[in-house]
């Protein structure tokens, strides 16, 4: 749950929040591509660090740390699986390089989470929906998207209440063999589904009552306009991409252990 917590949007006004979601999305994709290009620790550290100013500029440090903490569990899984498998494969001699490799793989994941959480923490889902609309995605889909985001916390809470209500009637979820355990979830799933259906009917009624589908030329309270900040971010992203591609093919990237040969002194 805590990882989702970090993805929850909170409206703050900051230069990063004001950026156009489309440009921010371009940045996230570019970040993703660059992170996947490199397997070395050094450039990934650079990628990690250059994003930190964005976080502070967006004033979302606290939530960002929260989502990073949420990612820590997966990060440690990635680290240990990489470490164990490489170790089994390459043996003890290569320990430092295995360590560096595993750390690089972990950091790659962290960089991805970092850029995605910057995106989600600074982009209101309303703006995101609008960006989808502007990218010629049909309005119904955009609406479905924002509504889904809106109702995730509501449904999660409802599921918890239903579980409590059934536990109060003596339901023990962890009791019995596998088959029994699966069946234990029926008293939770049925009310959850029934309520979801009822809720969607009520939503549909409310939408209809507010002139849903009155005209094909729907307008929007918000407007997306590219501003100076957007051009700057777009430019920086392109520069980063070009540099990264160039460096990939033309500059040999040293390993950290080559720069600080702590193991070599032995």
């Amino acid at each position: 749950m805590s990882m989702f917590e970090g993805l929850k949007f909170r409206k703050v006004s900051s230069p990063i929040h004001d950026l156009d979601p489309r440009v921010k999305f371009f940045y996230v994709i570019a970040m993703f591509a660059v992170a996947v290009m490199y397997m070395e620790l050094l450039p990934l550290i650079v990628l990690f660090l250059i994003q930190v100013p964005l976080v502070t500029m967006a004033k979302v440090t606290k939530q960002w740390i929260k989502s990073m903490r949420g990612a820590a569990f997966f990060a440690s899984i990635i680290f240990f699986t990489n470490f164990i498998f490489s170790y089994l494969y390459q043996g003890q001699q290569a320990l430092p390089s295995i360590l560096e490799y595993s750390m690089a793989m972990t950091l790659r994941f962290i960089v991805l989470v970092e850029s995605f959480s910057i995106f989600f923490l600074t982009t209101s889902p309303d703006h995101l929906g609008l960006a989808l609309e502007k990218s010629h995605v049909p309005y119904e889909f955009c609406f479905a998207f924002t509504t889904a985001v809106r109702f995730v916390p509501v449904l999660a809470e409802e599921a918890q209440t239903i579980m409590d209500a059934q536990k109060a009637r003596g339901l023990e979820l962890e009791k019995g063999n596998i088959l029994k355990r699966v069946r234990n979830y029926i008293p939770i799933l049925i009310p959850l589904i029934v309520n979801a259906i009822r809720r969607s009917l009520e939503l549909a009624e409310a939408m209809e009552s507010r002139a849903w589908g009155a005209t094909k030329n729907r307008t929007n309270l918000y407007e997306l306009k590219l501003r100076r900040g957007d051009y700057i971010l777009a430019l920086l992203t392109v520069v980063m991409l070009v540099l990264a591609v160039y460096a990939r093919w033309h500059i040999p990237i040293p390993r950290i252990m080559e720069i600080f040969p702590w193991k070599a002194s032995r």
Partner: peptide
């Protein structure tokens, strides 16, 4: 009966639908 993620967007919903 509230669909949007901000209050003002919700209040605007009907008007947006009317174009």
């Amino acid at each position: 009966q509230l669909f949007a993620l901000s209050v003002e967007k919700d209040v605007a919903f009907g008007l947006e639908n009317l174009g």
